[in-house]
Design a protein around this nucleic acid. Structure first.
Length: 599
RNA sequence: GGCUCCUUAGCUCAACUGAAUAGAGCAUCUGACUACGGAUCAGAAGGUUGCAGGUUUGAAUCCUGCAGGAGUCACCA
């Protein structure tokens, strides 16, 4: 006998049938809600019968008992049931769990859906940095989320394409360029020994400093603040530079290319360390013109309008919003203009089923407007745009502020984590067999395991607090705890050698509570991945991996595995170990976290 | 000020579409090692789920009001 369906599906089907036969209640199997039986009660799967008692015209206890009896008769996998108030707890036979282990959980790809490469892709945009300063903690959450959500959707069967949209043009870039010209003395990454993105960032800060001085001086000479900000010579010059850039001025373009090149080299290094990547990279410098064309089209269609000063707007007052600027009076484009263009381009490039944007919740308004304007421009696919809006990262002493120097730099943070991982490993590790290079790699994956898990375990939609001290913790609900569990299991499996696969046919044993506990967590993996993908929530996967590791550790602590004398039982336990290791590896992989063989 | 979101143990976080006694980790305290890897496990303590109402057989979850916090309302991105 081979297993065809999941026990919960069987239960739902049988319950649906029983409801109809006993009480004439029409309830589709898909609508039958089953939940895991709470630890304190006997059973594996629970049906709450309260919703049916009114129609059944019987007491909750009676309804539960009648359904229980009918389901038990219908399904051989149900070994029994018990009723407590309106809760019907089904008990699932050992054989079901053993068969599940042998036939499903042992598959290295258990829980992962096959990807149809021909299906319309789901395009995930994430990272999308500005090229005027290096990546910081906020970008880290974005990058980890983007990568992980992509992995997650793929695990659920989607044909995912990861894209990055580099914001390589605009007034902010001009600020860095201008400051470098003025104050840089020809400094380069080579001459300074600085990473390119950090060097350019330094001049962005430099601009701000001098600009503020100018504003202050103007105000002291009696100019109003607003006017001073607008008319400070540095600002005027930066704007002129942007204009020259848009006109294709050779000198400006050459400098722009040089400095952006520095930044890209720096970014690539950071992306590599974070273990993220893209299928396609867009540059706004190559796409913003399309946005301008769209604006012209909108004007022709009459859904946009031009003001007297020449600026172009979209009127959204009918949608309860404001008017939105799309082109400045000097004809240069703004953020929204570009995003309109890139959305169209991306739609044309991929014929996407969904366009997902991993962008912070500070831009909720922007995306609301983006979808509205796309709709007004007549694009039926506007509703395929999905803003995966994630919360801000805060520090124990409040928000990150560049002015106050509280920005946590991505590269520094990774350095810190790696140092700590090395210290921890030297103290606790069992890695004598590893060579120097392997050890370096180990420190790296432990450091990133800690960092990634710390960030991804939190519900993406919520703001989170990043406590540096806790993020490098290796105990409790952390990445390294799960990595450790994996390494330990792999050690057992290696020692077990090639035990012949256990067979459920002649198994002469019953499974213990701890084993059943682990099997049940394993069993819920496919459902967890589906639910997590629907919710775009790597956090659900992270918490799953932790639950599995904990269930396993508890089992491991008081159950002999290699010391077990009953060969069948031993084989089953080794098989269980291997299955858990596989599930940990796959779920951590969704989070972008590598698991080591030893640590 | 308008709009959006948030508030769960001392701290950081869970709780899938409303269901049994709201769960973990950290920190604190107590146990378990000549170990199939102790970076572990077992246990104790810790809660009026911001406050006040309402809907429901049943509310952390849904509705209303209030308080506190965040974001946004740019010719920045």
């Amino acid at each position: 006998m081979t297993m065809t369906s999941n026990i919960n599906d069987s239960l739902a089907g049988a319950i649906s049938l029983a409801l109809k036969e006993l009480y004439g209640i029409e309830q589709q199997p898909a609508d039958v809600v089953l939940q895991e039986t709470r630890r304190d009660f006997k059973g594996d799967s629970t049906l709450v019968v309260f919703p049916y008692v009114k129609q059944a015209r019987k007491s909750p206890e009676a309804v539960a008992a009648e359904i229980g009896e009918a389901v038990k008769k219908a399904l051989p996998e149900v070994s029994g049931y018990n009723v407590i108030k309106g809760f019907l707890n089904f008990e699932i036979a050992d054989n079901y769990w053993l068969q599940f282990l042998a036939e499903k959980a042992s598959d290295p790809l258990f829980g992962l859906a096959a990807v149809d490469a021909k299906a319309a892709p789901v395009v995930v945009e994430y990272s999308s940095p500005n090229t005027n300063k290096p990546l910081h903690l906020g970008h880290i959450r974005n990058n980890l989320l983007g990568w992980s959500v992509s992995q997650l959707l793929a695990a659920a069967g989607a044909n995912v394409k990861k894209v990055n949209l580099v914001n390589d043009r605009g007034i902010h870039i001009c600020k860095s360029m201008l400051a470098w010209l003025r104050y840089g003395n020809g400094e380069t990454p080579e001459s300074s020994g600085m990473k390119g993105d950090h060097l350019v960032g330094k001049y962005y800060v430099e601009f701000d400093k001098h600009y503020k001085d100018e504003v202050k001086q103007l105000m002291e000479s009696g100019v109003e603040e607003e006017q001073a900000k607008r008319e400070a010579p540095l600002m005027v010059e930066a704007q002129q530079m942007l204009k020259r850039w848009e006109e294709g001025d050779k000198e400006v373009r050459a400098l722009w290319e040089k400095m952006n090149g520095w930044v890209y080299a720096g970014f690539d290094e950071t992306y590599n360390r974070l273990g993220v990547g893209f299928d396609k990279v867009y540059y706004e410098s190559q796409t913003y013109l399309l946005g301008k064309e769209l604006v012209q089209k909108g004007l022709d269609m009459g859904v946009l309008f031009r003001k007297e000063d020449g600026s172009v707007w979209c009127d959204l007052t009918g949608d309860g919003l404001d008017q939105k600027l799309l082109l400045r009076k000097d004809g240069t484009s703004v953020y929204m203009t570009q995003d309109l263009g890139t959305a169209l381009l991306r739609h044309n490039d991929f014929g996407a089923e969904r366009l997902i944007y991993v962008v912070g919740n500070e831009q909720d308004y922007h995306f609301k407007v983006l979808k509205l304007i796309l709709g007004k421009l007549g694009f039926s696919w506007a509703d395929k745009v999905y803003h995966l809006s994630y919360g801000m990262v805060e520090l124990p002493n409040g928000k990150m502020k560049s002015r106050e120097g509280t920005v946590v730099d991505a590269d520094d943070l990774i350095d810190e984590m790696e140092k700590t991982a090395e210290e921890m490993s030297r103290e606790h590790g069992k890695n004598d067999e590893l060579c120097e290079e392997e050890r370096k790699h180990l420190y790296h994956i432990l450091a990133l395991g800690a960092l990634k898990y710390f960030i991804l375990k939190v519900d993406p939609t919520k703001n989170m607090l990043f406590n540096p001290a806790e993020s490098i913790d290796f105990n409790g609900n952390t990445g390294p705890f799960i990595q450790y569990t994996h390494a330990r299991i792999r050690s057992i499996v290696r020692k077990a050698g090639d035990l012949s696969e256990f067979s459920t046919l002649n198994s002469q044993f019953s499974i213990g509570e701890k084993e059943r506990g682990v099997l049940k967590v394993l069993h819920s993996l496919p459902d967890t991945i589906t639910a997590a993908a629907n919710a775009y929530s790597p956090a659900m996967v992270a918490n799953y991996a932790y639950d599995l590791a904990k269930a396993f550790n508890s089992f491991y602590q008081d159950t002999p595995i290699l010391r077990e004398e009953n060969a069948q039982l031993k084989a089953m336990r080794v098989s269980l170990c291997a299955a858990v290791a596989g599930a940990l590896k796959n779920t951590m992989n969704i989070l972008g976290i590598e698991v080591p063989e030893r640590m």
